[in-house]
Computed example of a mutant assay.
Amino acid sequence: MNKKANFVVHTTYTIHPDDKQTFIDAVKEHIVLTREVEGNVYYHFSWDMIDPNTCVLAEGWVDQAAIDKQLQSEVFQKALKAVIDNVRIIERHGTLYTVSGETDIIPEVAE
């Protein structure tokens, strides 16, 4: 059975160029463990193709309780501390969206 994301979080981080690998090292284990958390639908960090210092986090959760539990977890707190203590974040924006519906939008290729 596929889980549906009822809550979506979209966050962008602009990282100081000298701290990019430090950021990756700080969150890599956290990503793997978070993907296994009950209530998580997806959890992806990716780098912007235009601005190599901008990282995008996209995450989907089944409910607010799962998000709240994750934010208080030891795994999340450890990664957060590692980032705060060692990474210069130039800019950060995050938004939580409540999902009212879900539709597959993969288009067909015209011949």
Results as ranks from 00 to 15, higher is better:
M1C: 09
M1F: 09
N2A: 07
N2K: 11
N2C: 00
K3M: 13
K3Q: 13
K3V: 06
K4M: 12
K4C: 00
V8H: 04
Y13C: 01
T14Q: 13
T14V: 14
H16Y: 05
H16C: 08
H16L: 07
H16K: 06
P17N: 09
P17A: 04
K20I: 10
Q21F: 03
F23L: 09
F23R: 00
F23I: 01
D25F: 04
D25I: 02
K28L: 07
K28C: 03
H30W: 07
H30F: 11
I31K: 03
I31T: 07
V32E: 13
R35D: 02
V37P: 00
V41D: 02
Y42I: 01
H44S: 06
S46Y: 07
W47F: 02
W47A: 06
W47Q: 10
D48I: 00
M49S: 15
M49G: 11
M49D: 14
D51Y: 09
D51T: 07
P52Q: 10
P52M: 00
T54L: 08
C55E: 13
C55K: 04
C55I: 14
V56F: 12
V56L: 12
V56Y: 15
V56E: 07
L57T: 04
A58K: 08
G60K: 03
W61P: 01
V62M: 15
D63C: 10
D63H: 06
Q64L: 13
A65W: 08
A65S: 15
A66K: 09
A66H: 08
A66E: 09
I67G: 07
K69W: 02
L71Q: 15
L71K: 12
Q72G: 09
S73N: 02
S73H: 06
E74K: 14
E74M: 05
Q77A: 07
Q77F: 03
K78H: 09
K78Y: 02
K81L: 12
K81A: 15
A82R: 07
A82K: 13
A82I: 00
V83D: 01
V83G: 05
I84C: 03
D85G: 04
D85T: 02
N86S: 13
R88N: 10
R88K: 14
E91N: 11
R92V: 11
H93T: 02
H93S: 10
G94L: 04
L96V: 15
L96Q: 04
L96N: 03
T98G: 13
S100K: 14
E102M: 08
T103F: 06
T103D: 07
I105V: 13
I106S: 11
I106A: 09
I106N: 12
V109P: 03
A110M: 10
A110V: 14
E111H: 10
E111V: 11
E111A: 12
